[in-house]
């Protein structure tokens, strides 16, 4: 039953940041490129400002929607410390795309926990390859901070061998018509930034 292993991705963030849309765009792009795809997302209670994670796997044949340990090729996070929660899912040579945004949880505001001030050095030591980017500012440049998630998707796309036409088809299928241009711009800027930094 051995087949070519699936490509696995993990998306992390905070409820309300648009993880579900980011997951859908990546999954639809893989489907448009002709792959079998599975994703998994968190719904319900976990969306009320809590930690949210989505997993995406694509390849000739995908079984588990959940990413096996130490196998994710890319971890993308919309919040800096959220990336650190999923270190054990990422392959030893995996890439982490992390938005530098910091969202302080209520547990920190109430004094019950501390928000780490050394997130960036920890990210550098945890991941073999790291793209630590100010995705929110890039999204503002594209037209709205709400497109931060799609900036990160663009950065992820820079490291995946899916055709540009698949990404465009996917974004068209996933966002509302009136936000299409904004999201296409955000995607492009995110991809350009990743290519610039990663040297693709």
């Amino acid at each position: 039953m051995q087949t070519e292993p699936a490509t696995s991705l993990v998306l992390a963030g905070v409820g309300g940041q648009g993880i579900l849309l980011a997951s859908e765009i990546i999954a639809r792009a893989a489907m448009a490129a002709g792959f079998d795809v599975k994703t998994n997302e968190v719904h319900g209670m976990a969306q009320r400002g809590g930690s949210v994670v989505a997993q995406i796997r694509f390849g000739p044949r995908v079984y588990s929607p959940l990413v096996p340990a130490r196998s994710a090729r890319i971890l993308a996070a919309l919040e800096r410390v959220e990336a650190l929660r999923y270190v054990d899912l990422v392959a030893p040579d995996g890439l982490a795309v992390v938005s530098s945004q910091a969202i302080v949880p209520v547990t920190v505001s109430s004094g019950a926990a501390r928000y780490p001030d050394d997130a960036e050095p920890r990210l550098r030591s945890a991941f073999a390859r790291l793209l630590f980017l100010d995705a929110a500012s890039i999204a503002l440049k594209a037209g709205s901070i709400r497109a931060t998630n799609v900036v990160v998707v663009g950065a992820v796309a820079a490291d995946l061998a899916l055709p540009a036409s698949a990404w465009e088809e996917s974004i068209r299928a996933s966002v509302k018509e009136k936000y299409l241009d904004l999201n296409l711009r955000a995607f492009q800027l995110g991809r350009d930034e990743a290519r610039r930094v990663l040297g693709a």
């Binding site: 209670m45 400002g49 930690s51 270190v87 949880p105 547990t107 928000y115 920890r122 030591s125």
Partner: peptide
């Protein structure tokens, strides 16, 4: 060590 002391982020009332 990398993730052991991360602040919990439970769901909260909006």
């Amino acid at each position: 060590g990398i993730g052991a002391d991360l602040p919990a982020r439970p769901p909260v009332l909006c």
